[in-house]
């Protein structure tokens, strides 16, 4: 009965979505606002990557909200898993094999470097703070898999996370007061397009986001791993 009802609901939704999809032409036109971003995004923000100029330039306030959502989810996960888990017993985990251990220790700095490259060059090439932060977090995941027993220190990850958020908000407020424009306005010199030091505050904010996202996702993994041992 329940499955039958579910299938009826699903059929109704399928007809609705299908009819809507048939009406939307594929591969034809961009939206007006998208056309504006493409036409003048390079001159407005100085970033070669238009997606970056939308995420951190035009819609930076939106990104601030998103980072806040990520932060709240990480804090909520910590709160959910921390309740009543203070048992204190630590099973001795079986150490990883030598090959895995050495490989992880060899790869860890390289993956960190790659993540840093991704988020430093976010305004020039594909990538940015979110992708680079995820790669940094996967480096920490590798440490948890290969070098068992090693933990990131909670104080340091929390400090990194807070510092990233503070840089983001502080740069935005500076634009509000010192430069006399609006919140998160791009007040630094734009430089030449396609150079590393260009696009004003965008690379700085993306580096801050990279640190913040990396610390948060590593903290999420840390919470779950600590719970499972």
């Amino acid at each position: 009965m329940r499955i039958f009802l579910s299938l009826v609901v699903l059929a109704v939704i399928a007809v609705g979505i299908g009819k809507t999809l048939m009406e939307i032409p594929f591969g034809e036109d961009t939206t007006n606002v998208g056309g504006y971003y493409i036409q003048s995004g390079r001159d407005d923000t100085g970033a070669a990557n238009i997606v970056t100029s939308v995420v951190v330039g035009y819609r930076a306030f939106d990104t601030l909200g998103e980072v806040t959502v990520l932060f709240v989810a990480a804090v909520g996960l910590g709160a959910v898993l921390a309740v009543g888990s203070a048992s204190g017993r630590r099973r001795d985990v079986e150490p990883a094999s030598l090959v895995l251990y050495t490989g992880c220790r060899f790869l860890f700095p390289l993956i960190l470097l790659f993540g840093a490259y991704i988020f430093i060059h976010g305004h020039l090439t594909p990538g940015g703070g979110f992708q680079g932060g995820a790669i940094v977090a996967s480096a920490f995941l590798l440490v948890y898999l290969g070098c068992r027993g090693r933990r990131i220190r909670h104080g340091w990850s929390k400090a990194t996370e807070s510092l990233g958020g503070l840089v983001f908000v502080g740069l935005g407020l500076l634009g509000l007061t010192a430069a006399g424009h609006f919140f998160l306005s791009n007040y630094l010199p734009k430089g030449t397009v396609n150079h590393l030091f260009s696009a004003g505050i965008i690379p700085i904010i993306y580096v801050a986001i990279g640190f913040k996202v990396g610390a948060e996702l590593a903290g999420v993994i840390d919470d779950l791993v600590e719970e499972s041992e």
Partner: peptide, 27 residues
Amino acid sequence: MVDPVPQALVLTAIVIGVAVLALALGL
């Protein structure tokens, strides 16, 4: 050029998705 606005939206949606998934798995 393809439309950058949906790409920016989806970029944020993916990151929020992993946060929501982690919270749900914690619960």
